[in-house]
């Protein structure tokens, strides 16, 4: 499946990454090569094969419902970017209109 500029721009939008025109150009070319190599997967007959999300022979891992103290607000907010803290809150610009 070939990849074109539009696909690259769309994926970058979904991933919320700003790309320059030069990057779009370069990535389109590079990713086309990679996807060509990946496309060979289509040749493999997997009609009777279940997908594996993990190789781990493990199921039902849970923990007890025991509350424990975490970080304090001060520690939580210590890494806030410049302008990203307002008192005990994280501060961001106006939330997107969608959603």
């Amino acid at each position: 499946m070939p990849i074109d500029r539009r696909t690259v721009v769309h994926a970058a939008d979904l991933a919320r990454i700003a790309l320059t025109d030069a990057e779009v150009e370069r990535f389109t070319g590079q990713l086309s090569v990679v996807l060509d190599a990946v496309a060979r997967l289509a040749e493999v007959d997997t009609s009777a094969i279940p997908p594996s999300a993990s190789t781990l022979p493990l199921r039902n891992v849970e923990r007890d419902d025991e509350p424990r103290p975490g970080l304090g607000a001060e520690e939580a907010l210590a890494n806030a970017p410049r302008g990203g803290r307002d008192g005990e809150f994280f501060r961001v610009q106006e939330v997107l209109q969608e959603r």
Partner: peptide, 21 residues
């Protein structure tokens, strides 16, 4: 939002895009 680099744009969406770009 919570840590690391933030490159502000005109709105939050733009800030996301520029920060990550």
């Amino acid at each position: 939002v919570r840590y690391g680099l933030r490159v502000e744009g005109r709105d939050l969406l733009e800030t996301y895009r520029r920060t990550r770009g």
